[in-house]
């Protein structure tokens, strides 16, 4: 075989192996955290599955309860449209976690609530909200 064909064969072989590797990995994830279904709050409430899933939504108003015994443990509701999902999370909460924040949680549903081991907030690149007019705004309040 001439050198030219050897080179071509090597390049094609290398590309094929790598492509195969990438595709194979997409069907054989290394662990349950590699590929996770992203479903809606409504879907998880309808299904009875205990599969690991990812869910996004808004933290429902006045639903955050921090456990008095362990302040790393928090209970809150995620709402998406009309559906509400009770969530339990143990771990460090992101700074932007609060009522009304857009969050993503990952975990599994059992015993009527969602046990999350990952809690992410969308990092706002700026303050959300409407502009304030002169009357509603007091500079002294904020900058001391």
């Amino acid at each position: 075989m001439s050198q030219k064909y050897k080179v071509i064969l090597a390049v094609v072989g290398l590309s094929l192996i790598s492509t195969f590797w990438i595709l194979w990995s997409s069907f054989n994830p290394v662990n349950e955290k590699a590929l996770v279904k992203f479903i809606s709050v409504g879907e998880i409430l309808d299904s009875n599955s205990n599969e690991r899933v990812r869910i996004g939504g808004i933290v429902a108003d006045s639903s955050i309860i921090i456990s008095p015994s362990n302040r790393m443990e928090v209970y809150f509701d995620i709402k998406e449209g009309a559906s509400k999902l009770p969530v339990r999370f143990v771990g460090a909460r992101p700074d932007l976690f609060k009522h009304g924040a857009e969050v993503i949680v990952e975990g599994a549903f059992f015993n009527g609530s969602f046990n999350a081991d990952m809690l992410q907030t969308k990092c706002a690149s700026r303050y959300e909200g409407d502009l304030r007019d002169a009357a509603s705004y007091k500079l002294d309040d904020i900058n001391i």
Binding site: S25, L35, V36
Partner: peptide, 9 residues
């Protein structure tokens, strides 16, 4: 269904 891809992948 949307399947999200995590860092492990």
């Amino acid at each position: 269904t949307k399947i999200t891809v995590g860092a492990p992948f």
